[in-house]
C-alpha cells in the first residue's frame, strides 16, 4: 500500500506550470504524526482537490500552505518563495495573493456583508470609497448576493454565509483561492450553487483553486486533478477519470464509500469477546 499509485499518464499533466509545491512534508501535532513525507504539486490556473477521510489533516495542509503553521521538515514553495522560511512581515505580503474560504465562513460578526467584503480591500489598498463600493458590488453580483449587502452575518443562512465568504476571499483577486470543506453542511441546492460558483469563478478569474474536501461526487465533478491523502501520505493522485480506474483497495474504499476496508470500521480495540469476559473497561 505504501506505493503511491499514480496508475497512468500522470507525468503528462504534471509538466505544467506549478504554483504551489509541497516537498517531503512532515508535520505532527504533539506526538501524533499527521503528515509523513507528503509531495504535492498544484498546477497554476486549475482546480486541484485534496481529498481524504476526515482526520487526515486536510485543513492542516491548507494552514501549512498559508503559513499559519510551520512544518517539522520539508518545504512548501508558493510562487517561488519558501513559506516556512518567511518572516512574519513577508508572510503577510504573500498572503495578500491568497484567498481562503474557511469551513465556517469566518465572516467578521461585527460587520455587515458589505464591510466584510470591503475589509481586505480597505486594509491593503488606498482606493477611494466609491471604487471600493463598485468592487464589492461586483463581487457580490458574482456570488448572486448583491441584494444582501446590508445584512449582518447572523442574518444569513449557511449557504449564503459561505457565498459571502467566497466573495470576500476573491475580493483582492488573489492568485490562489483555498477552499476548506466548501460543501459540508450544505443543502443540495446550496451545494449545487457552490460547485457551480467555484468552477465558474476559476474560469472567469483565472486563479488557482485548491479544494480540500471529502465530498466525493461534488469534488470529482469540478476538480481537474485530485490528490488522495490517507495515513499521512499521498496514496493516489490523478485526474478524476484516472482515479476511478485505480485498483488499490484503499482508493476504492474511499471513492466508492464502502463502510469497511483498509480504513476499518472499528477503532483499534482489544478483542471484543475477551473484553466482555473481563467485564468493565481496563484503564
Amino acid at each position: 500500500m505504501e506505493a503511491v499509485s499514480p496508475a497512468t499518464g500522470s507525468a503528462s499533466s504534471m509538466l505544467e506550470d506549478v504554483i504551489v509545491e509541497i516537498k517531503d512534508l512532515t508535520f505532527s501535532r504533539g506526538n501524533r504524526p499527521i503528515f509523513k513525507g507528503v509531495d504535492i504539486k498544484i498546477p497554476r490556473g486549475k482546480v486541484t482537490a485534496i481529498m481524504g477521510p476526515s482526520g487526515t489533516g486536510k485543513t492542516t495542509l491548507l494552514k501549512l500552505i498559508g503559513g499559519q503553521l510551520r512544518p517539522d521538515s520539508g518545504d512548501i514553495v508558493v510562487e517561488g518563495s519558501s513559506v516556512p522560511s518567511l518572516g512574519r512581515k513577508d508572510l503577510f505580503v504573500i498572503r495578500e495573493k491568497m484567498g481562503m474560504l474557511f469551513q465556517s465562513g469566518a465572516l467578521f460578526t461585527d460587520m455587515n456583508v458589505f464591510d466584510n467584503i470591503a475589509f481586505p480591500i480597505r486594509v491593503h489598498t488606498q482606493l477611494p470609497e466609491e471604487m471600493i463600493r463598485d468592487i464589492v458590488l461586483m463581487k457580490l453580483q458574482a456570488v448572486g448576493l448583491r441584494g444582501a449587502y446590508d445584512l449582518m452575518p447572523s442574518e444569513l443562512s449557511g449557504g449564503m454565509a459561505r457565498r459571502v465568504a467566497l466573495a470576500r476571499a476573491i475580493s483582492l483577486d488573489p492568485n490562489i483561492v483555498m477552499y476548506d470543506e466548501p460543501f459540508t453542511g450544505q443543502d443540495p441546492i446550496a451545494m449545487g450553487v457552490l460547485v457551480n460558483l467555484i468552477r465558474r469563478l476559476n474560469q472567469a478569474l483565472g486563479h488557482t483553486s485548491i479544494i480540500v474536501s471529502h465530498d466525493i461526487q461534488e469534488t470529482l465533478s469540478i476538480a481537474d486533478y485530485i490528490y488522495l491523502i490517507a495515513d499521512g501520505k499521498v496514496i493516489a493522485h490523478g485526474t478524476p477519470d484516472q482515479l476511478k480506474t485505480i485498483e488499490s483497495e484503499q482508493v476504492r474504499q474511499f471513492v466508492e464509500g464502502l463502510p469497511d476496508g483498509p480504513v476499518p470500521f472499528h477503532y483499534q480495540a482489544p478483542d471484543f469477546l475477551e473484553q466482555l469476559m473481563h467485564k468493565g473497561v481496563s484503564r
Binding site: 503577510f92 484567498g99 474557511f102 469551513q103 465562513g105 469566518a106 481586505p120 486594509v123
Partner: peptide
C-alpha cells in the same frame, strides 16, 4: 469565539495581524 469561528485565522489569511 472569534478563534473558534476561524475569524482570527481568517484575518491572518487576509494579511492582517
Amino acid at each position: 469565539l472569534m478563534k473558534a469561528t476561524e475569524q482570527l485565522a481568517s484575518l491572518e489569511m487576509i494579511g492582517v495581524d
